[in-house]
Amino acid sequence: MSLLTAERIKLLSTRSPWWCGLLAIVLPVGFTVLLATQVNPTNAPGFEFTPAATQGTASLGRAVVMVLAALAVTSEYRFGTIRSTFQAAPQRVAALLAKSAVVVVLTAVIGAVVGFGSWAVFRALHSGPDLDLVTAADWRSVAGEVLVFALTGALALGVGILVRQTAGAVAILLVYALLVEGLIGVIPKVGRDIQHWMPFFAADRFLGIRDGGDDLQNLPLGPWAYLAYFAAITVVVLGAGIFAAVRRDA
């Protein structure tokens, strides 16, 4: 318990998590406003007005949350405070699990604000019953951001612990999330099949987001199985990070 409080004080007593958190909310919600004012049934006949469609820009927030989570640990390596952390809590597994928990709670809260915020502003600009949260799938699309953001935070933290350097960790995370996953599909023949097993592709399938024109038939997993798959990847990466931190010199 005391380790959780210590990590909370640590995370919230510098400015960068606040700025990242703010950006992680403003960016996707802002672009949702832009999107909502631009689309209507006449100029975009293919656009489905569903709760899932309100979450199209959440991936921007997810990218910023990755920076936030990675920074939570790489800045400790950068400034040497990781040594004070391990000096105060020599059981490194406990110390890093406490840090993970604090990061997960914060990113989950951000995910909630992004999910419901995007949905609310979209619905405010497009009144009509299509955007009501009725089915379980509707709720999964919007409230699901809580789980997706939380897991994204933990995943990025794991990468941060492994890489230890801010620039390296952020570059890996952003290049991967924003470019690599999309480009994998370009590989002839096997590209699409590989893509079906990419972590952020899995997260989007859990949310039920349709990315433009993709063939989303014949997917190997259902939404909840995709979430479990995304969670499994997160646990493996974070676990590897913690394992490495225990083995390595601080």
Partner: peptide, 9 residues
């Protein structure tokens, strides 16, 4: 090491 503090904290 006295410099092991976060400069913005």
């Amino acid at each position: 090491d006295a410099k092991w503090v976060h400069p913005n904290r």
